[in-house]
Design a protein around this nucleic acid. Sequence first.
DNA 1: TTCGGGCATTGATTCAGATCAACTCTGCCC
DNA 2: GGGCAGAGTTGATCTGAATCAATGCCCGAA
Lengths: 250, 250
Amino acid sequence: MPDQTTCQFEARPRRISLAGAHRSPEYCLSCGVRGRSVCSVVDDADIARLAETAVETLVLPGRCFIEEGGPATDFFNITAGTVKLFKALPDGRRQITGFAGTGHFLGLAVSDHYAFGAEALDTVRLCRFSRARMRHLLDDFPRMERRLLEEASNELVAAQNQMLLLGRKTARERVASFLLDRVQDALDPTGVVPLPMTRADIADYLGLTIETVSRTLSWLRREGMIAIGKGHAIHIAAMPRLEALASGDA
Amino acid sequence: MPDQTTCQFEARPRRISLAGAHRSPEYCLSCGVRGRSVCSVVDDADIARLAETAVETLVLPGRCFIEEGGPATDFFNITAGTVKLFKALPDGRRQITGFAGTGHFLGLAVSDHYAFGAEALDTVRLCRFSRARMRHLLDDFPRMERRLLEEASNELVAAQNQMLLLGRKTARERVASFLLDRVQDALDPTGVVPLPMTRADIADYLGLTIETVSRTLSWLRREGMIAIGKGHAIHIAAMPRLEALASGDA
DNA sequence: TTCGGGCATTGATTCAGATCAACTCTGCCC
DNA sequence: GGGCAGAGTTGATCTGAATCAATGCCCGAA
């Protein structure tokens, strides 16, 4: 269990050069959602200004780089890896509110304190900006603002789906919905779902316990809907049945 | 029970005149969040253009004016009243994802279908825009876009809080959190909470049943934390105890 | 190779909240 | 005022998931 109370940046933070940013559009603000580049929103001069304000950072697995309730000084863009976002109650109960992968922005909070914590699932590469500078950047790059609005809208839709799941779905429906969401994310038509998170993370995401998640996955396997492979990967064997289950039709 | 499958606009829809919009800044896009005006984002010429694209509409209580999954043609701004936003499962289970009051924007969805339904709790006055026109308006009014981003960020924070509530809080903690949220919204320091929604709405918002909501409110009354008055209003008698309960300290 | 620790699975039991059921309260129309 | 319908309350019982408990699996360190 990593220390959740500290929040340190790991390894080789460095300034990103203009040339580097330009050659590698997946870096920093120029990277898109889910790997698709939106580099076109900025030109060379933009990149020069962006590069001056951004610092690339590596975050080791299990390391918390946003502390819930801490002062919201920075704005982040994930360039590689996956993070979990979460909120906690004083007695330790946790709710993971989402997973964010390559291209996602973090730290939009209007408040001056972060409303959630963030922890790396695997080794994460991200770009860090001062929020004060970010504000000025938005003044100069209106298309950037539209990009953020689009992302926030998407997250809002995801959040509403999650509220339906948490408030009204059964354990089986939750796990089925989760697997389908993941397979959508992976864009893998063969139906193999990579699960870089532990059972505890899945449980905290679905509002269940690890035991219930484990039991439910076993049940799905016995029913022939999934096959559980090695190394945290799951193969979906009966997509239509799983879809019916996820939407509550079954 | 109003007919949920149809989605009609009620009563005197009309175009808003330039003069009217100008004299009454609470109308349309010029109105702010929770009653605070952000009229300053537009000047007279802006209002003229906005007025040409907006239609004011009255929606009667219980009437559904956004149908979940329906084509997302319009964009809305609430100028009076309160609406509930919800998602439903095929078998009728419902989750209310939020309540939106005066000043809120609805219909940000990036998809071309609404991701949620909306129904008026009381008589609601709102401004309706074509989403196609809305897009052009945003090009001309960058400050409008910032305003929307700010609202989306706020809603995202609220959604994350709600996920924590739905995934990890007990019934008592949920009801206590709900009452405190409402009293914050009402900005009433005397601790009187107006509840324009039914027990069924509260239950669908908190992921509980009406019976559990009723029992829990009775328990809070017996414990001396609240007093239940006439006509859907509740007085908070022991704010600190309720706050401790809501955050899980108790 | 064995040991140890974290993660996962499975079983037995408990319990918070759902469900089923009865009843009350309130407002409204006649 | 009478009666009716929808909203709300309260009680009895049931159940899905939590909790408690034991064991298995995997992997890295000694």
